Amino acid sequence: MRKMIFALSIGLIIGSATTAVSASTEAVQATIAKFVFKVNSQEKELKNDPLVVDGTSYLPVREIADLLGYELDYEDTTRTINFEQKRVKSNSYLELTEAPDLSEWINVLDLIRFYDGNGIKASLSGDNSVTNLNIGVYGVGFPLAFEDQYKQGDVPKLFQKSKGKLSMLVYKNNIYVNKSNIKDLGFPIEDEWMPAADLTKTSTKFDFSLLNGKEKLKPVFLYTEQGIIRAMNSEAGILLNKEDLRARGLIG
């Protein structure tokens, strides 16, 4: 019986096509082999046949990785092959054992109120099998019956999709989404901004002309004596970024 290995040398087949990545320019002779492949006693079929060189079998790595439940990534510049175990897709939730830090989360209804008043379409809807959250052009469905948000009690439940960009937390009859996720999608979080009108007892001068005609919730950079501070228009007036204000010593 021939030896079966993942070879990282002369004849390693990376892609789904029969392209070989060679560690040298040495010429070799290879023959196409036919094998029966089984994973957990279940027979599997390869699209690309293995090659046999000097009694050693060279397998199509990407296909083998897929059969074994791994994702393969190949970095051409460094000639690096990386295997990552695939995440199991699931419609289940993770029941948290401790109360979550709600400072990292925002109530979906507060999020929708803020966006709807400032020209960004946002909605929460669902049926007896899924709860849908839509923000702008982005939408995601979570495997939670819409009315079940009122039946969850005090046990926090976290819903995450393997390739999703948003996480949903159901806790004390409320639905929350992760603030970092929202910012990664390019949307602002209301409690990270404050009305410019509330910034009192400061001699700093602001030139808000850059905001003239600017869409709501579209930040611009203002140049002040203390440094750059982000600002944006909103239904409530001009908002200033709290993080920037703290960095410039304008608020505590």
Rank of each mutant, 00 (worst) to 15 (best):
R2D: 12
M4K: 12
I5H: 00
F6C: 15
S9E: 11
S9K: 13
G11F: 12
L12E: 03
G15V: 06
S16A: 07
A17N: 05
T19M: 09
T19F: 13
A20D: 05
S22L: 00
S22T: 00
T25R: 14
T25M: 13
Q29V: 12
K34L: 06
F35C: 08
F37M: 10
K44G: 02
N48M: 01
D49K: 07
P50E: 09
V52S: 05
V52E: 05
V52I: 14
V53I: 13
D54P: 07
L59V: 10
L59M: 10
R62M: 11
R62G: 12
R62V: 15
L67S: 05
L67M: 07
Y70G: 14
L72Q: 01
Y74C: 10
T77D: 13
T77R: 03
T78L: 12
T80Y: 07
I81G: 07
I81W: 08
F83G: 12
K86L: 13
K86N: 08
R87L: 07
K89A: 05
K89C: 02
K89P: 10
K89W: 01
S90L: 03
N91E: 06
S92L: 13
Y93Q: 02
L94T: 03
L102T: 05
L102Y: 03
E104Q: 15
D110P: 04
D110E: 05
D110F: 04
L111M: 11
F114I: 02
Y115F: 14
Y115R: 15
G119D: 01
I120S: 10
S123Q: 00
S125A: 11
D127E: 00
N128P: 02
S129V: 04
T131H: 11
L133A: 01
L133C: 09
G136E: 11
G136M: 09
G139K: 05
V140N: 12
P143K: 02
L144G: 15
A145E: 02
K151Y: 09
G153Q: 03
D154H: 11
D154P: 09
V155H: 14
K157H: 03
F159L: 04
K165A: 08
Y171R: 04
N173R: 15
I175G: 01
Y176L: 10
N178T: 03
K179H: 02
K179G: 06
S180Y: 01
N181W: 02
I182R: 00
K183E: 15
D184T: 01
L185D: 12
F187G: 01
P188Y: 00
I189G: 15
E192K: 02
W193G: 03
D198G: 08
T204C: 06
F208A: 08
F208V: 00
L210R: 14
G213L: 08
G213T: 00
K214S: 09
L217T: 01
L217P: 04
P219L: 07
V220E: 09
L222D: 01
L222P: 05
I229C: 04
I229Y: 02
A231E: 12
M232V: 00
S234L: 12
S234N: 15
E235T: 10
A236V: 06
D244I: 11
D244C: 11
L245Y: 13
A247E: 14
